[in-house]
Each structure stands twice: as C-alpha cells, then as structure tokens.
C-alpha cells in the first residue's frame, strides 16, 4: 500500500507534469485564465488520464509492441470524446470557454507519456494511482497559475457561472492588469512561477543533502 501512495505523491510533487516535467504546455497556458476554467480542464484531463491508464494497463500484454502508439491514441481519444460530450451537456458555458482544448487532450503529451512510460509496464492498481497523482498534479499546477492570473487580470476570484458562483471582486473594475489574461501574461506568469519553483527545489535539495550527510 505504501508503494501505491509513493506512486501517487510522485505525480504531485516529484514529477509534477507542469513544473518538473514541463509537459502539456498548451492547455496550461490557454486554460489558466480563471480558477473555474483551470479546475474544469484539470479534472477533465485527470478523468482521461486515470481511465486510459487503467485500460492500457489491462491491455498491456495484449497490445502488440509495433502498433502500441496508435492503440494508445484510440483508447485516449475514446475517453476524450466521453468527457467532451458530457461537458457539453452539463456545463455548456465552461465547454464553450475551454473550446478546442477539450478535444486536444488527445494529443496532450502527459497522457500519452504516462501510457508509454508507466501504464504499459505496471499493474492496474499502480497505473490507477499514477494516473490519479499525475492528473491531480496537473490540476494543482493549473490552479496555482489561475489563482495568480484571475485576480490580477480580471480583478475577480472564483467566477463560475455554470455552477452559480458569482465570484468575489478582488481588484476594482478599472485597476486590473488586462495583460495577465492575455497570451503574454500566460507565458510570463508561467516563466516566473517555474523559476520560483526551481529556486525552491534547489534550496530544499541542498537542505536534504546536508541532513543526509549528518
């Protein structure tokens, strides 16, 4: 059991897909404009990641090695289509905002990467935990960016009209910095957050190295 939790935590901290592996940049930049969008995108990707990891792990001894990538793509695309249709029916506003980034989960490097690197070599329960950890790591990364971008760019926090949240106004209407929800703001925010996390990791690893030495 301990091993399963280690696999789970690895996706969130050790190999966080956004901040440590730097994968899946397109949806990260595009959908972190508001907390609700980030959460929607993150959970949609998590669902696809968990389901495709489980199915691919179940089929890992049946899929021939030469055609494994097309097989993975078909499995992933099936779950993406499910998410796309469910979201279009249950949260049409969110589906409209996320737009083509929902079908584009098919070509998200995180999902194919985990299928190839993890699910095709590990048991079903470990693959499940890996999918869950990686998916939540991705969601947390998106949330961190959107928590910075939404208040600065829109001046609001937690607006989600589909679910009846009015949101809070954090910054007055004419004082917000529009740049943060425009494309340049996405690149610059992610760059600065990434640099901050690199600094933190470097510091923590020297602290741990010293402790290990004692």
């Amino acid at each position: 059991m301990k091993d399963r939790w280690r696999v789970f935590a690895n996706g969130i901290f050790g190999e966080n897909p956004i901040f440590r592996l730097v994968l899946g940049m397109c949806p990260t930049l595009a959908t972190s404009t508001a907390v609700a969008n980030a959460l929607g995108m993150g959970l949609a990707a998590t669902f696809v990641l968990v389901c495709s990891n489980v199915i691919i792990s179940l089929l890992r001894n049946i899929i021939p090695d030469e055609v494994r990538i097309p097989c993975y793509i078909v499995v992933v695309a099936t779950f993406v289509t499910i998410v796309d249709k469910v979201m279009a029916a249950s949260a049409p506003g969110l589906h409209q905002v996320l737009g083509i980034f929902i079908p584009l989960i098919v070509v998200n490097c995180i999902i194919l990467g985990r299928a190839e690197a993890f699910a095709s070599k590990n048991s079903v329960s470990r693959s499940f935990m890996d999918g869950l950890g990686m998916g939540l790591g991705f969601t947390l990364g998106l949330l961190l960016l959107s928590i910075i971008r939404e208040p600065l760019g829109e001046g609001t926090f937690l607006v989600a009209e589909d679910f009846g949240f009015e949101g809070l106004r954090v910054i007055a209407e004419d004082k917000q910095v529009l740049m943060f929800i425009l494309p340049p703001g996405a690149f610059i925010t992610l760059g600065l957050v990434l640099a901050g996390i690199n600094k933190l990791v470097a510091k923590l690893s020297t602290v741990w190295a010293q402790k290990g030495g004692e």
């Binding site: 730097v22 340049p184 690199n198």
Partner: peptide, 23 residues
C-alpha cells in the same frame, strides 16, 4: 542568468515578450 531562470523559465518569459510584440 540566475541559475533558477536558466532553460524553460527564461524561454517562457521571452515567448511572452514576443507575444506582446504580436499583440
């Protein structure tokens, strides 16, 4: 560059500046 900025972080900030130009 500061060590923490090397690689992806500075590339992303640079991409942000190019994106401002395209705005």
């Amino acid at each position: 560059l500061p060590k923490a900025m090397e690689g992806f972080p500075i590339a992303l900030i640079l991409a942000g500046l190019v994106s401002i130009a395209f705005l």
